[in-house]
Design a protein around this nucleic acid. Structure first.
Lengths: 136, 136
DNA sequence: GTGACTGCAAATCATTTGCAGTTCG
DNA sequence: CGAACTGCAAATGATTTGCAGTCAC
């Protein structure tokens, strides 16, 4: 894998945010500093880097894939209304993670994905009920 | 919600299989008995019935949504190679489920989705390595 | 030099939607 | 009858791909 300005910018941007952006969001963010970068390039590099294990492609529900530059083991909470994803403090699930891994052996599984669902700050505030634009 | 032949056929078919089919797979299966049904109708009804809580739309990874006619609480194992989904025997995770629900309170979450990843029977057999058509 | 990479545009895939005609209650 | 529903075809949205030119090593 070669070293290119685009790839480095993508990785740097992804690592600098906590928002688990989609490819498209990342593209928008990147264009500020690098106006000629193309969406295709962003997709290609994210795919490539997640194959290489440099970034993580989240297996979230919702149609758009989200990416995470933080490779440490941790779980996510996804807002069912707007789709935003936030981290669960690492450690919170340590005990549970261990127990799950034990069961995985019997089931011949080698990994798992645990996603919690809970409204984000913004969407809880909008208590105007909330049947408008739900995802999933 | 009206009662229509199409909707009943969809529900019956979904309940009769253990495969967690995609809308498209269901469409193919249904055409045998009901050759004029349209894919749009299958999508519309699955969405409608999952809203109504009659069927479950799975939050699996992978681009195509999968549906489950079994409403009982249980988890799934997804084959990372072919995307097939199978059930984990109910009960297996009871203890873990309870523990997760306790943590959910603190995190202001109201549900969670746990998906295990493990090769299905067919794909494990194909030990011709397996880098061909992986999903995710 | 040449293989990896880029921007761009067109293609693909899953899903959704508009519409005109049907069916259910 | 009027609302809910259907088949069909066209539209949408996310992601992928082909291509011709460019850059890294």
């Amino acid at each position: 894998m070669n070293r290119t300005a685009q790839r480095e910018a993508i990785l740097k941007e992804l690592r600098s945010v906590k928002s688990h952006p989609t490819a498209d969001e990342l593209y928008t963010m990147l264009r500020v500093k690098m106006p000629t970068i193309s969406l295709g390039t962003v997709y290609r590099n994210l795919e490539q880097m997640s194959q290489a294990g440099i970034v993580r492609k989240l297996e979230t529900a919702g149609k758009q894939k989200r990416f995470d530059g933080d490779l440490s083991e941790h779980h996510h909470v996804r807002c069912p209304v707007c789709g935003a994803v936030r981290d669960v403090s690492p450690g919170t699930f340590d005990r549970i993670d261990r127990e799950i891994r034990v069961l995985m052996r019997d089931l011949q599984c080698d990994s798992f994905y645990l996603e919690l669902s809970g409204k984000c700050r913004v969407c809880s505030r909008n208590k105007d009920q909330g049947g408008e634009n739900a995802e999933t």
